[in-house]
């Protein structure tokens, strides 16, 4: 085994241990009620955090591989913005009662389908173009993101203040109110998509070389990229629908993973990102809730750190040029 691989494996082991410790701490620290209650209550929350960490980490890695960049993430493509728009549209046309009273499972599935369909339309349209279409796609994504955000902001202004409050509630990333039924549906979806993704895993490394080299090495580029982007779309949809939009989380964990693992190969980066995601969410939530007894949303802390990382990456990129 080569030195780089040994280092990467070491990092993975350490991350695995830290992630496991985070999960155990999350479950057992400061238990006051009976175990039966705690296990279901905290267990559900833990599972949700793990699913979200997994979805965001994997989708970000795949997206960055396909677009051959290390700064942009799926949220740049206007995904979370679309989620916000869907929620706003529901409140706007059906009232906040609808947001609460509609059966959550079909609503959730509908959201996932709409977001995936949106991605599919965007890609099909863009793949008719020529070489640089992925850059074009990212640009289009930004434009869509702005459009969706402004559209939602505009509609929110027209809302009754009470309705707006309940909308705000639904939109803020929150790890405290997660619907247990949604969680099971999410687990099934994520597992199914991951099985599909497993078949693509060997092609991912080749895609890092860029379109031309991947084609030259015999990868069916269009099909592979379309499939990967579909996987990304579903994963983002699931995580956003579960806890709401968190813009910089994916960027934060994937950049850290690259930094720690050294090698960019997916065998190392994918698990490292997922473990870091779990550490960030589960560990962060444990520290905030139990150690500091804060009830602040963890999302705010993560966004802050992720934002700093984003700026650092931009500065580094600018310095290189």
């Amino acid at each position: 085994m080569r030195a780089h691989d040994r280092r990467a494996l070491g990092v993975l082991c350490i991350l695995g241990v830290v992630a496991a410790v985070s999960c155990v701490c999350f479950m057992v620290l400061g238990v006051k009620a009976g175990w039966g209650f705690i296990l279901t209550f905290r267990g559900t929350k833990l599972l949700a955090l793990v699913v979200v960490a997994y979805s965001i980490a994997v989708s970000t890695v795949l997206f960055q591989t396909v677009t051959n960049n290390r700064i942009l993430t799926p949220s740049i493509m206007g995904f979370d913005a679309l989620f916000v728009l869907i929620q706003t549209l529901v409140v706007f046309f059906l009232g906040s009662v609808a947001l609460v009273s509609v059966d959550p499972v079909p609503k959730f599935l509908a959201e996932v389908v709409v977001m995936t369909a949106f991605a599919a339309v965007l890609f099909r349209w863009l793949f008719l173009g020529a070489e640089r279409s992925l850059h074009l796609m990212v640009l289009v994504g930004i434009v869509f993101g702005i459009l969706f955000r402004n559209l939602s902001a505009f509609m929110a202004r027209l809302l009754d203040p009470n309705e707006q409050v309940s909308l705000q509630d639904a939109l803020f990333a929150s790890f405290n109110q997660i619907d247990a039924t949604l969680l099971w549906v999410s687990c099934v979806i994520v597992a199914a998509v991951s099985l599909l993704g497993l078949r693509l895993v060997r092609r991912l490394d080749v895609l890092m070389l860029g379109r031309a080299q991947a084609v030259s090495l015999g990868v069916d580029y269009r099909r592979t990229v379309a499939m990967i982007l579909a996987v990304v779309a579903v994963l983002v949809a699931v995580s956003t629908a579960l806890v709401g939009p968190i813009t910089f989380f994916g960027l934060l964990v994937v950049s850290l993973a690259h930094l720690m693992v050294g090698s960019g190969r997916h065998v190392w980066v994918l698990p490292a990102s997922v473990l870091l995601g779990i550490i960030c969410l589960v560990g962060g939530q444990t520290v905030l809730e139990r150690v500091f007894a804060f009830n602040t949303a963890l999302a705010i802390v993560i966004e802050f750190l992720g934002g700093l990382m984003f700026i650092a990456l931009l500065m580094k990129g600018a310095a290189r040029r």
Binding site: T65, D205, L209, G210, A212, Q213, S216, L217, V219, R265
Partner: peptide, 30 residues
Amino acid sequence: TDLLARRLSILRQENHISSRLTVRDLVGFG
């Protein structure tokens, strides 16, 4: 395309790779 990849290879001028790979990793992709 995968059949052709065993008959014909190409290297273009610009080869931008955003992730870190070792020389051996890269050569191995061949």
